[in-house]
């Protein structure tokens, strides 16, 4: 299973094995990684699963939908060009080693 590293705002790293096909958000929630809230359960409708993708990985992720781009304007901590909604990042074997940084808060 691909390993995903979640780096908290306080710089604590949690490495989690996430099954292929799950979202980066689901990997965090089931393993109690604090810092991702995911109020809408992955519906791209709440913007409380915001992450900053590590610069080395940003180009390896798929395209954003228009809906995700719109929602990124509603995050609690201002989004940047490295911002994604973690519920919209599907885990594939190519993402083994992915590093995402968590914002200070989500709402």
């Amino acid at each position: 299973m691909p390993n995903i590293t979640y780096v908290s705002h306080a710089d604590e790293r949690t490495v989690v094995e996430v099954p292929v096909g799950w979202s980066v958000m689901e990997g965090a929630i089931q393993n109690d990684v604090a810092g991702i809230v995911a109020e809408c359960g992955g519906g791209c409708a709440c913007a409380t699963c915001h992450v900053f993708v590590d610069p080395l990985w940003i180009d390896k992720l798929g395209e954003q939908t228009v809906m995700e781009q719109d929602m990124l304007e509603c995050t609690a901590i201002e989004s940047t060009e490295r911002s994604r909604l973690s519920c919209q990042i599907k885990v594939t074997s190519n993402l083994d080693g992915l590093i995402v940084h968590l914002p200070e808060n989500q709402s």
Binding site: W22, E26, I29, Q30, N31, D32, G41
Partner: peptide, 24 residues
Amino acid sequence: PPLSKQYLSEGMLEDRLLFRSSEY
């Protein structure tokens, strides 16, 4: 919530419904 949505329409697997893994 997914029970009437993705679970029915997209064949979502049961382990994805769980809030937390047992280790939690």
